[in-house]
Design a protein around this nucleic acid. Structure first.
Lengths: 216, 216
DNA sequence: AATATTTTCAATAGATCTATCGAAAAATAA
DNA sequence: TTATTTTTCGATAGATCTATTGAAAATATT
């Protein structure tokens, strides 16, 4: 009877704990081989159990992917809400938001990678909750930019929507290039992204030789 | 006898032309469903032919992926070499490099997406040539940044290697968020990325409230 | 038109993958 | 210890998917 909810307290906890180990293994294999490249046998091998044993903890590979994705963005919205609510200058808020976004790469890298790379393979009937959370998250992120423009912290005419999408996409690439140099901490990488977004690579005195892009 | 090279001129051309159609279809299916999510039947369906017919034009799915990836970066190095050789200020070079990198998203989007997302699934025995080209490309890109620092166009202490990786990763995300708003042309997006990299989002007079990241 | 070559196809072997089922093993409770 | 419940396992059905093969269809050549 594979139903954690039907068990009394202690059994339920044990079941949930084991289930977490199962999903950790699934996340690791999804991150490494991709959702379609990963077989349930691969996940079982990661744990050293029989392939069929997994189905005591999830009832389909789809469901495993859904759970991994859900766990990967748990807390994201709440933490960003707190950042938005803070009474701080917009550039600080954006820096905090970038840190908030990248931080999980440190302690749940496989979940992060699976979310970024494999969410697209999650069937439609399992996407709704995730889509709602993503929409809410994006709106909060954009809000920070919009407030910053209103307050005069960011340049006038900044396209907040596109910029939000671009910034989030940039954050999502971090785990891919992070692996290539260990001498940066994740925090330093987050600051590097933030500095680049806020200041750019030109010394502040220089004039541009190339033409600035105009909003359409 | 599925060997384009053994055929005389006219036949050979016809064979190559059809082969291109096959790879176009493969690229489209790889881009949409991912390498492992895409079956040879999917590719055949895209073309309206039998699954087995494909094997007249490639001898394994692996090979198809390799050919798609190779085609996707054809010309990249040469174009970047030309940009590096130009006698122009570094900021213009970087802008050109970004344009060069993003431009193929316009006319071979499926090849671009396959390269960015599915190259990791290419088996090791087919990676060498691609890895060499990528290394050469990255070195050229980094060269532009290093020259810019030497010339005083970019801020002193810029970590050219990390910045190169970050910038390229940023360019590679373009096709993913581009789809979300059609009112930008690919050129405008490239300029947006370049502006952001060069100038940042803060008005040039402002001081930062947050702390600048220090190189390690 | 008759022949030769190129291209496509149907059939299929062999491998792998997901999910199910009932039994065995392990853990817990009585 | 014995009985009960939870967890794991082996076996397997059924559905893929890749790649091969020899024949048919289409095209080109003589």
């Amino acid at each position: 009877m594979p139903d954690g909810a039907a068990k009394p307290g202690k059994m339920k906890d044990k079941y949930r704990q084991r289930q977490t180990e199962i999903f950790d293994a699934a996340a690791a294999v999804f991150a490494k081989k991709g959702y379609h490249g990963a077989s349930t046998s691969d996940i079982a091998a990661e744990l050293g159990v029989a392939q069929s044993s997994l189905y005591y903890y999830f009832k389909s590979k789809d469901e495993a992917l859904e759970k991994v994705c859900l766990h990967s963005i748990k807390g994201y919205v709440e933490r960003l809400q707190a950042i938005v609510a803070n009474n701080l200058p917009a550039d600080v808020k954006i820096r905090d938001a970038i840190h908030n976004h990248i931080e999980p790469v440190n302690y749940i890298p496989d979940y992060f990678l699976t979310f970024v790379g494999e969410l697209r393979y999650l069937p439609n009937n399992r996407r709704q909750k995730l889509n709602n959370m993503i929409a809410e998250y994006n709106a909060l992120f954009e809000q920070i930019l919009a407030d910053g423009v209103t307050d005069g912290f960011f340049i006038k005419g900044l396209d907040c929507h596109s910029t939000m999408l671009m910034l989030i996409a940039q954050c999502n690439t971090v785990p891919f290039w992070f692996g290539k140099f260990e001498h940066y901490s994740m925090d330093q990488l987050a600051n590097m992204l933030a500095d680049n977004f806020l200041l750019g690579a030109l010394p502040r005195a220089n004039k541009l030789n190339s033409i600035l892009g105009e909003p359409p």
